[in-house]
Each structure stands twice: as C-alpha cells, then as structure tokens.
Design a protein around this nucleic acid. Structure first.
Lengths: 191, 191
DNA sequence: CGCGACGTTGATTTGCCTCAACGATTGTGG
DNA sequence: CCACAATCGTTGAGGCAAATCAACGTCGCG
C-alpha cells in the first residue's frame, strides 16, 4: 500500500490485483526543496502524484521570467499535459518547493491500468472534470480580476499553500510582479 | 445516427446497442444567432455537443461586462464544468453565435453511458486530458503575452473561428478591450 | 427610413511594470 | 563562528501599455 492506492481507496474499491499493479508502476521518490523533478525539454511523459510536500509547475519565457502554471500538495496530480499527446518536448518544469515525497508514473503504464481497470478510468475522468473546472475558474479570474482581487482569491482558495510558497512565486502564479504583490500585502496590513 | 455518434465512431468502435442509447439521450436542437441556450443561474447540468455552427460560453461580471470563457465549433463540447459537481447554479451562459445545430445531453444520462460503455469513458478521458492541455496553454498565454501577442496566437490557433466571431467577443476572450483590439488590428493592416 | 449594434479613432487616465536601491534572512565556506 | 554572498521582500521614482471615456461612421435590419 502506498499513498496513491490509499487515496484511490477513499473513492472507489480496489482489488488486490489492481492495487499490486498500481504499486508496481509507481516509482517513489523523495525530493528536497528546490529540486527539479521534471525539467523542460524532457521527452518523458510522466504523471506525478504528491504524497507529501509541495510542488509547482512553471514555464520559463524567452526573457527568462518564470510563470507558475500550478501548485500541488498532498493528493494532487501534476504533470505536463500540454505535451502528453504530442511528440514535442515538455514545456513546463516541475520543481519541489519543500521536502516532498512523490510517486512518479509513466503515462504508458497508467494507460495500461486504464485498460485493465475501468473503474480507475472513471475515477480519473471525474478527477479531470474537476480539474477542467478549476482551470476554467482560474481563467475567469485572470480575465476579470485586478491584481489585488486575484491575491484575495488566492488567499481564500489556497490558504493551505500560502505559508509554504515564496511571494515571488505567488506573484508569478497570479500574473503580477513581486513588487506589486508586496504593495498589495502592505495595504492589507494597514487595515 | 447523429453527429455525435458519427464523431465517436471516428475514434472508437460503437455497438448498435450503445449507439441507440446515446441517440436516445441526446436532444437535438436548432438555434439561431444570439440565442441563449443555457442561461447563467440555471440548475441544469447539461453538456452540449456542437453538430454545426458556433457557440460561446461567457461569464457576466458584476459590472455587466461579459468575459468569454470558450468558443466551440463543430465536434466540440461546451458546458459549465464549474458547477457540474456542486449544487450551485451555473455561472456561465452559453450562447449561439450563428445558426447552429446542437445535441444536448443531461449529465446524469451521460454518466449512465459511462457505466455501460467503458470505451466511451476512455474516449472522454482522453478528450478531457486534451482539454486540460488547451486550458493550461490559455493560462500561460494570459500570464505571458501582451495584448498584441495574444491576438496573434488567437488568429493562428483559431483561424476557423475568426471570421464568424465579432471583434468585441474576441477581445473579451483575450482579456482586452474592443478599443485595444481595434488598434492592434489597425497596426496589422499598416504592415 | 431610422434605430441599434458594432467598429474605429482620439484624448486622457491609470494600474501595474520597470528599474534601482536597500534591508532582512539564510546558508556557506574559510 | 564569523564574513560574505545569494536570495527574497520592500520601497520609491518614473514610465508605459492598455483602460477609460467620449464621439462618430457604418452597416444590417425591423
């Protein structure tokens, strides 16, 4: 039993057979703060399940600036979906923001599980639907909110993250500069 | 046979049995330009498959401004994923931008198909993975690009859409004002 | 025709960025 | 254990991309 099968069992029943197969294909890794788990321009198609700690995926623009696509904590998946079904190399890097324990699964192996175990596919389908919802909500935030409002929403939605993540990375997630975030936080304190 | 089963057959085999069930649960509608198919604050949990024409989903902010979440043409799905698994009323409206033919499916009915026909679930799972990729790409665009660059990307990625969609709606998709888009387009012509 | 929706253009404003400098904190090697 | 560098957050001054506000032309349509 590992953290992934543990997590799946909370949602759906899991036969010993499938559980064993899932555990066979997961590669457990312990990573330290600042460690790059999956660099950009990689050919790997891997999904990462966070057992503990905190990760983020980010895109590095031509000018060198990093833009955070996602943060992930316990029981979240993170990976490069943009290049899953293309021959392109990965466009985002995945980095650990703390001591973390992660379970790495190759996409081709997870596809095999889907074939053998339709209930897991159903489980993931719902998971993906919720992720689509989360991403759409983020897009609406980016379209509608001011820098200050975006930070408000981040604090309420991701309270668990806020203490672990440096401000300049929060800024890069919200699409603002660290300086602007600093000024926004200053305003909050003065109230 | 309808456009949906036709589309599915291009990807995976479809038994007569399942095909019939799919066609039973789809409600075909013809809608005109400007027609609201699914208003905000609705309790319906419906997926819409576009057979022909063009649709969009948008969020109306408190100040009355509309922000376009998605455009959809032939063979695309559109719906409110943000409220699929909540009791909240829908947050986006779905509108037709042309004479369109759509297939409406209630979420509870599509769930039944998933149960009976795992291959369709697999088909959708891959579909969702690609949509996640598309949404993530959009988020990166919003985080990294200038107004002008976002328009460039829109024109190349959505060439098929560009002629059908009024400019102020393209602007609301890109997160800029119609005035700014007008000036950007003017620049293009002068080159 | 005349109205409303849409696109354009100009003048002005503004929210946020850029650039620069400077503490605070952390960690690292001598 | 301390000196030093590197990283991060903060603050200020100035600039700019895009928003706002306002006016007007054009087109399609009841």
């Amino acid at each position: 039993m590992n953290e992934l099968t543990d997590y799946i069992k909370k949602g759906i029943p899991l036969s010993d057979d499938i559980q064993n197969k899932l555990e066979e294909i997961t590669v457990e890794k312990k990573v330290v703060k600042g460690e790059i788990i999956l660099p950009e321009n990689s050919n790997k198609k891997e999904h990462i399940f966070v057992a503990s700690g905190c990760l983020r995926s980010f895109y590095k623009a031509e000018n060198g600036k990093e833009h955070t696509l996602q943060f992930a904590i316990k029981n979240w998946w993170i990976g490069d979906y943009m290049t899953l079904y293309t021959n392109d190399k990965s466009v985002v890097s995945i980095e650990s923001l703390s001591h973390s324990k992660i379970l790495v699964i190759d996409h081709s192996n997870i596809e095999k599980i889907y074939l053998e175990y339709p209930q897991f596919e159903a489980f993931q389908r719902r998971n993906f639907e919720r992720r689509i919802a989360t991403l759409q909500k983020r897009i609406l935030s980016l379209l509608t909110l001011s820098a200050s409002e975006k930070y408000d929403q981040f604090v309420t939605d991701y309270a668990a993250f806020e203490k672990v993540i440096p401000n300049y990375q929060i800024a890069s997630y919200l699409g603002i500069t660290p300086e602007s975030l600093s000024r926004i936080r200053k305003e909050r304190i003065n109230k």
